[in-house]
Design a protein around this nucleic acid. Structure first.
Lengths: 343, 343
DNA sequence: TTTAGCACTCTCACCTTGAGAGTGCTAAAA
DNA sequence: TTTTAGCACTCTCAAGGTGAGAGTGCTAAA
């Protein structure tokens, strides 16, 4: 499918106009709006051709044209201008990050908030997560009776806390000794190596090591870290979600962690850090997302810690701006992660 | 305002019927539906009286009656049957909690999920938070260069992690020594006591203690811990939120942390653990919640750690069931918190 | 005090209608 | 060959009209 320049122009204008108004775009109004140097009849002929290519669609015989999913895809793939974010927007965003508390959690929350506000859509950010769990540090804190709080720190800064129940009460001193022992012994070890050290430990140590191993295995098996969402309500103000049932289906994907993990796993997980993926109208697979598009990116340090960020909005979203924003925030997060978390 | 038994009955039935159908309730259909031993004319007279009391309202001259906010409030205050949850529902819920990972975060997430599913509405759960921050344990973990990961554990199990930047690189060994020293010295101390120990420390120790104090102050100042939400999309399926703008306003309160904190601070924070608060139609204060009711409870250990849980649904919600569910989940969480987190 | 009966009111679903916007086609102009 | 003016046609949408249905308040009798 090879489009003439004029066809590309018209497709682009129709998409712009449709994004602006959420209405079908007619030939005459398009010519008037953009002062095109051709008549509406010419535009109609081109529209007709674009409709044959299935890039445009007519809701009804005598309505204007609306871009199809294919049309958006062509637009995003070939026509969208990679404008980059305006400098002052960049500055505002960067500023916010360096203003915030120095804490991954805050950064991720902030990233979600920035994405949501900039794109006026729903956003998601997953915490950076390593494919391989490498032990860094263990802490055991007595709470009450046989209850102990276990804090496990992985290389890369992932932290897990968990209450464990020992078979008998143990003093804080003894716990500290064991924690220190394990911390020293296991630094930079993966699950396998740690398993092989099990024989060196006494009975209590073995119990704790077992829990530690279980926990690390669990972390390794999970495909993504904690998920932060923001701007869900932004989506509700879009006219295509006026009947809230449509909105419900779309937002449900974000809310239901397992669905979202599936979605991420089958798309952005295969993308390189720095790359952008745009999922338009659910790409036939995700029925609930028929009305939505998702712009996704991966951030972090490609070899160790990575996470995903994305924006979910109506299919009729301003792709250029959204893509720039997602790319920029991903870069900011990558920088922060590599600066502070790297091994 | 003193209602006769018959008036109470009719009010109750109208509310029940309205909750079921979301439609105005007429005299005739009410008599038929519930096989009342009186004629529709009698019911009409009583309805008229209830309307005078402003417990009912007519959307239009010749429509049926709809409960007013006042009507719901009377119902919740006087007529609602405190049924308690069915035994098997209780069992299902309890079971889920003991099945889950032994980890506050999981419990809170689960609580939110249970509330959302049981009530088919949106739910919120705040992490338990102590009014007074009491130090328990400090851990310092070298990451890279001058970057250090500080893990702060408070009495009661609140954990904060933060990256701090020291003025010069420090070895893990030295960090461990300092952390142990602080941990020993400050156990069970509040901010004030810790501040008085500052002079004992060397320069590096002072820096760290300052950050620690700042962090503890921050925790003490925040009114609530982490917030977990669930079931936002449930609300979208209610007919009163068909035009998504209504839904947007309501859900916005949940999404915007500061708004939600305000709301909690001005209501449930003043409630005792074990008590239930029902906020109907925003009580005149919260414009965004005109269409909603919130059922709130406080859980935890009254003297140390408390958190809030709640359900947000349409004003037309099944209060008896929702209240029972919220109360039950609050009790379960209280038990878990006092069992595992208490000092 | 309750109820049957009645006149009245209001909504809602349904239909019709005309304006408006858009289309495709054709024939003439460039 | 490409572009454009003109025209007949199509379809939506808002506005207005109509009747069925449900509900009400009032009155007079039980």
């Amino acid at each position: 499918m090879q489009l003439t320049d004029r066809q590309k122009l018209i497709l682009t204008l129709i998409i712009h106009e449709h994004i602006r108004t959420a209405q079908p775009v007619g030939s005459k109004s398009l010519v008037e709006k953009y002062n095109l140097a051709m008549s509406s009849a010419t535009v109609r002929n081109e529209m007709s051709a674009l409709t044959d290519y299935e890039l445009l669609r007519q809701p009804h015989t005598s309505a204007g044209r609306v871009p199809t999913e294919e049309g958006y895809r062509f637009f995003v793939g070939n026509l969208v201008q990679k404008s980059g974010l305006p400098t002052n927007t960049r500055r505002t965003i960067t500023h916010q990050f360096y203003q915030s508390r120095q804490d991954i959690e805050q950064w991720l929350r902030l990233a979600a908030s920035v994405l949501a506000n900039q794109s006026q859509a729903a956003s998601l950010v997953t915490a950076p997560h390593a494919e391989k769990a490498i032990f860094k540090h263990l802490e055991l804190i007595a709470t009450r009776g046989r209850q102990v709080l276990m804090v496990l720190v992985l290389m890369g800064g992932e932290i897990r806390q968990q209450f464990i129940s020992l078979s008998e009460p143990v003093s804080q001193d003894r716990l500290s000794v064991i924690a220190a022992q394990i911390s020293n012994m296991c630094t930079r070890c993966d699950v396998e190596k740690i398993s092989r050290m099990r024989f060196q430990m006494d009975s209590l140590g073995k119990d704790i090591l077992d829990i530690l191993i279980a926990e690390m295995t669990l972390i390794e098996e999970s495909t993504t870290g904690e998920i932060y969402l923001d701007g869900m309500t932004n989506v509700l103000s879009e006219p295509e979600f006026a009947e809230s049932d449509e909105a419900r289906q779309a937002l449900h994907i974000l809310e239901e962690r397992s669905l979202l993990e599936n979605l991420l796993a089958s798309t952005v997980m295969n993308t390189d850090v720095g790359g952008i993926q745009v999922l338009i109208g659910g790409e036939g697979t995700w029925q609930e997302l028929r009305q939505c598009s998702i712009v996704l990116a991966r951030y972090g340090d490609p070899n160790t810690l990575t996470g995903s960020i994305g924006v979910l909005g109506p299919i009729r979203m301003p792709y250029d701006r959204t893509i720039s924003t997602v790319r920029f925030v991903a870069n900011v997060l990558s920088d922060l992660v590599t600066e502070t978390l790297a091994v």
